[in-house]
């Protein structure tokens, strides 16, 4: 089998499996998997910047929340229907990402991590500051009537699952396409050796900015979808924790792989789900996994797969 055929079979197979699971799973896991697919889309967005471009952001919750609040506030206060509201979320995410990118990309390495962390913290505090509209930590609930997209009621579990599936499939396909295009290859070149990429004549800053905006917009799409599908918009999603989660998922699954974000999200979600039955201190698991990953498997699960089984894994 050629590499292209293998790639199509692997990723198409996963999507077919997820589609089939939509009819087969019992209610509890059905709901979980819908959530995982939305969060994995967020991780896919994060992976574009971290895995492919080599920029470690600690502030992606800002983009996730920009999408979520851009959508949620538009529905709640402007009375928009979900279609235009989703667009509002995407636009909000793209604008925030563009602004953050223009400023933060002037720094590199550790300074980039801290600057993105600071911007996200300022964003979180802003959500709390305008508590009169955002209702702060408490958040607000989107009513069932506000969640009907093109006549499809997204609060219905089956519709919700396939909406999440559609989002995930779109993101996965987009990234798969991107890494086979020159644009994706330039990003990887920047990750591997920024000076050499610049010397070859690429406008490194423009490519990095495009990566930030693309990554931020996909994260915002996931945020907007999360708010719409699960009917809740709250400040928790803007907090530092939600900047750490995508890093954790991508590291666990394998940075710079197309499947990694999904694998990482799936594993972490069930790890926390199972452990929260035993203890309320479930973030302990996240901490331990982070430390173990940095120590023993910086490549993540899909990275190990690539190293041991198939070197051509995209």
């Amino acid at each position: 089998m050629s590499d292209t055929a293998k790639t199509v079979a692997l990723h198409g197979g996963l999507l077919a499996l997820l589609f089939a699971l939509g009819f087969l799973l019992p209610a509890y896991h059905h709901g979980n998997l819908a959530r995982i697919m939305v969060l994995a889309s967020y991780a896919i967005g994060y992976n574009i910047l971290f895995g492919y471009t080599g920029l470690l952001s600690l502030g992606h919750a800002l983009f996730f929340a920009a999408g979520m609040y851009g959508m949620g506030l538009a529905v709640q206060y402007l009375g928009l229907s979900p279609g235009p509201a989703l667009t509002a979320g995407l636009v909000a995410g793209a604008i925030v990402a563009g602004a953050v990118g223009l400023l933060a990309l002037r720094t590199a390495g550790v300074a980039f991590m801290i600057v993105t962390l600071m911007f996200a913290q300022a964003g979180y505090l802003t959500v709390l500051y305008f508590g009169a509209f955002t209702r702060g930590d408490e958040g607000f609930v989107l009513q069932q009537a506000q969640r009907v997209l093109w006549g499809i009621d997204l609060s219905d579990p089956v519709h919700r699952y396939f909406a999440a599936f559609a989002l995930f499939a779109t993101c996965l396909a987009a990234v798969l396409w991107m890494v086979h295009r020159p644009f994706g290859k330039v990003l990887i070149a920047i990750r591997e050796n920024e000076d050499r990429a610049r010397m070859l004549g690429y406008d490194v800053f423009a490519y990095k900015l495009a990566a930030v905006i693309l990554s931020g917009t996909i994260s915002a799409a996931a945020g907007a979808a999360y708010g719409l599908l699960f009917g809740y918009v709250g400040a928790t999603f803007a907090s530092v924790q939600y900047s750490i989660f995508p890093l954790l998922w991508v590291l666990l699954g394998g940075a710079g792989t197309v499947l990694g974000p999904f694998i990482g999200t799936l594993f972490m979600f069930y790890l926390i789900d199972l452990s929260s039955g035993i203890t309320t201190a479930y973030m302990l698991i996240a901490g331990v996994v982070l430390v173990l990953l940095t120590l023993f498997a910086p490549q993540g699960l899909a990275g190990e797969l690539r190293k041991r089984i198939w070197r051509g894994l995209p």
């Binding site: 470690l56 302990l284 901490g287 996994v289 982070l290 120590l295």
Partner: peptide, 9 residues
């Protein structure tokens, strides 16, 4: 940074 985030939690 990633490891100390883990230690933090």
């Amino acid at each position: 940074i990633v490891a100390t985030i883990g230690i933090l939690y």
